[in-house]
Deep mutational scan, measured.
Amino acid sequence: MATVKFKYKGEEKEVDISKIKKVWRVGKMISFTYDEGGGKTGRGAVSEKDAPKELLQMLEKQ
């Protein structure tokens, strides 16, 4: 499965596409929420050019 690499609050993070719950576009950025486990929801964003094609496909399906 594909992963998304991004920075959040200065920390490098990587999340599996299957854990992503919601995806939306903000200008040229793709924002998303994902399941961190333990009932927590994380947030992240990547630029449109750095987003994996699976993430862009999720955006188109909504």
Rank of each mutant, 00 (worst) to 15 (best):
L59C: 06
D35V: 05
E12W: 12
E12K: 05
M1P: 06
E11Q: 06
F32Y: 01
K5S: 04
K21I: 13
K49E: 15
G39L: 08
Q62Y: 03
K9R: 08
R43F: 04
E48H: 07
Q57K: 08
I20K: 00
V4H: 00
K28D: 11
Q62G: 15
K61A: 14
E12Q: 11
K21P: 02
A45M: 11
S31Q: 09
E36V: 05
K5W: 02
I17S: 14
D50Y: 08
I20M: 03
F32E: 00
A51P: 03
I30Q: 00
I30F: 05
K5V: 09
S31W: 08
E54Q: 14
R25N: 15
M58Q: 07
L56Q: 09
M58N: 03
G44E: 01
P52R: 04
G42I: 08
R25G: 12
L59I: 03
L59A: 11
W24N: 07
K13G: 04
W24S: 08
D50P: 04
G39P: 06
F6A: 01
K21C: 15
S18Y: 10
G27V: 02
M1F: 08
W24Y: 04
Q57L: 11
I17L: 12
K49T: 11
P52Y: 02
E54Y: 12
R43I: 03
R43Q: 08
G42T: 14
Y8D: 14
Y8W: 06
M29G: 11
K7I: 11
K49G: 13
L56R: 10
R25C: 10
E60N: 04
R25T: 13
T33N: 15
S47H: 06
G44D: 01
G39V: 11
K28C: 14
M29K: 12
E60F: 03
E11L: 05
T3L: 12
K61M: 12
Y34H: 09
E48Y: 08
E14I: 10
G39I: 13
E14S: 09
V4R: 00
G42C: 11
T3I: 11
Y8G: 02
L59Y: 11
K5G: 01
S47I: 14
Y8I: 13
A45R: 08
D16V: 08
G44W: 02
G42V: 11
F32A: 03
G27N: 12
P52D: 07
A51C: 07
V26N: 12
S47F: 04
G44F: 04
V23H: 01
M29A: 15
A2P: 10
W24C: 14
E12A: 07
K40S: 13
K22H: 04
K53N: 11
L55I: 13
V15M: 03
R43N: 06
T33P: 00
G39W: 10
I20F: 04
K7D: 13
D16L: 13
K49W: 05
E14R: 05
G10N: 08
E48C: 13
E54A: 07
V23F: 02
T3Q: 05
K9Q: 14
V4D: 00
W24T: 10
T33W: 13
I17G: 03
E12C: 09
R43P: 08
S47Y: 12
K21S: 15
I20E: 00
S18G: 07
G10P: 00
V26W: 04
K61P: 07
K22D: 14
D35Y: 05
